[in-house]
Design a protein around this nucleic acid. Structure first.
Lengths: 333, 333
DNA sequence: CTGTTAGCGCTTTCAC
DNA sequence: GTGAAAGCGCTAACAG
């Protein structure tokens, strides 16, 4: 790398001032067509590219945003990320992808580092911070959108799924099939969606006149392995369970494996419902009944909303609540 | 956002020069212990954070890197990305994640935008650019590491898997099981790994004295759906095939589905081997025999190598070639 | 239409 | 030990 071409280089070559070059670069008017052409020619010939760094220092805009997720190798998040990246690319933005790995301290440090990098905004997906930490960390950011969690303030955008309704739908489906002993593998304790889905689950039971049994609910990590472990525990403690509603599809696949180990047949000896409808759920055997979630849209819309806010939109840049849909497959027909 | 605290603010409050604050912030010596403490106290009290933007403008270092992949929602790439992000985080770097979506033009534009953002380096995973475009696009970057593709120059780092050996291993395994009519679903035509795996496939056949049949090789997109389609085509044209080596696990799962449609039993009526060993391959039914690839390590090591190069390492910052390993499961026991 | 001046927030160099 | 001056590459505000 010898020397990066600067505006001064172009200006010298074109025998104009730096300001004139700046005007051409930014397509501002108030420039004679001939100068513009001459400068543009030189820009092209020299292969000049403006330094976004220098520009950012004065405009206070970087053309970057941060996307904070739990774990990009989880198919759910990688699909959300794809949605974000897709609209970011279309708008000329670049996105910093950061994994919190379920660690609130790490999440805090990430938010800090993104602020240090002067991102124009952040998208926080499934944050595991408590309200106080969340709001203080977000105070350093001019714009933010929360996915899968309400913000409690109009300062922060939100992109939500009606998780409670999803839990309700799933549980009702199980009840309609005659199940009354239905367990819930509830996901991480700090997960807002996990709590909401639990609300829907309980509402469906109550509506059906089935008494709630707290011991049928069990927290778990949102990964296959822990799904298997917790299912084994739950079924060992409560063999009477005839159905299981799972926090997400990964956990549900874990439950599937547990049943295989136990020789318990699905759906006859245990019906299982997952959540998210990741591609995997259609590919396992038996295939998974699940609640569809608009993963890609959650991401793309979150980015749209963030952009709207960055560009000064206030009222009509509305938050969105998506509705889940039950996808019926073999594990709970 | 009212007003971001700057060094000048701290300097004023501490009644020292900006330079002194800078020294404290950067831990440089040549400062009395008392001044250092006093300044540090004020930094903490004011919550001052240095502007990486301003710093970058003078140091020419941004603490950011670009990661370019085909599609982050492909489990292979999302795992590579996790590896990259993990070591980046540990070293205080942030990573821009970009999807090319198999589009060379888009890949070119992405590389351009990353250069505009002054990233300290880029990691290009499974680039689909031809050599000329690749090298001209990389000329704008001070440091680069290629994953899954040789660079042909010591200027650019490389992180490789011995793909030919993987193809050889897989094919040999099938031959050892008595197969002689073995097809190859070869992946995208511009894929370097696809070509290499093909080389290994052919070598194994030749060694076994089995004549090569080009019509048994078929390009395909590296996704489930196209795997299904191309398998249906291939089996319809060549029903004599008794085994199939697939570019990656997604294609192999696609082949699995094709067989289900056809009522062709696996592995008895068609043996299938995939590549990469993504989590999915152990979860489908029948489970997939495949070539394991060190996805996370490919990412983490690529980032380590890039950092070494950024930090001025020249000779002993060596490229790495990983060895694949055959993972035998049900689809080709 | 075009140029000049100032300054974004920091580090580098050199002086004291 | 500490500070003053200059400048990284650009844009905003005002002149002319």
């Amino acid at each position: 790398m010898s020397h990066r071409i600067t505006m001064a280089d172009v200006a010298r070559e074109a025998e104009v001032s730096v300001m004139t070059v700046s005007r051409v670069v930014n397509g501002k008017d108030g420039i004679s067509i001939t100068t513009r052409q001459r400068v543009q020619e030189i820009i092209d010939r020299l292969g000049y590219r403006p330094s976004t760094l220098a520009r950012s220092l004065v405009t206070d805009r970087t053309g970057t945003v941060g996307l904070v997720v739990i774990d990009n190798s989880n198919p759910y998040f990688s699909e959300v990320a794809r949605g974000v990246e897709h609209v970011a690319y279309a708008e000329g933005y670049n996105v910093f992808l950061c994994n919190t790995e379920e660690d609130p301290q790490r999440e805090l440090r990430i938010l800090q580092s993104l602020s240090d990098k002067h991102v124009d905004g952040v998208i926080l997906c499934s944050s595991r911070l408590d309200d106080a930490d969340l709001h203080s960390a977000l105070a350093a950011h001019s714009h933010a959108v929360l996915v899968n969690r309400p913000s409690g303030t109009t300062e922060i955008g939100e992109m939500l799924l009606d998780d409670a309704y999803g839990g309700y739908l799933a549980t009702k489906h199980l009840i309609a099939s005659g199940h009354r002993a239905i367990g819930y593998l509830a996901g991480p304790t700090q997960s807002f969606s996990g709590a909401q889905r639990g609300t829907g689950y309980r509402q469906a039971l109550t509506e059906a006149g089935i008494p709630l049994r707290p011991e049928w609910e069990q927290a778990c990590l949102p990964v296959v392995e822990n799904g298997t472990e917790k299912t084994l525990e739950l079924l060992s403690d409560h063999p009477e369970l005839s159905a299981l509603f799972c926090y997400n599809d990964l956990v549900a696949v874990g439950a599937l494996k547990a049943c295989q180990q136990l020789g318990r047949r699905i759906p006859d000896e245990l019906a299982i419902i997952g959540f998210d409808d990741i591609p995997l759920s259609a590919l396992v055997n038996p295939s998974l009944t699940t609640c569809w979630s608009p993963k890609y849209e959650l991401g793309s819309q979150a980015m749209e909303l963030l952009l709207a806010r960055i560009n000064g939109c206030t009222d009509d840049c509305t938050n969105v609540i998506f509705q889940p849909e039950l996808v019926i497959r073999e594990s709970a027909p």
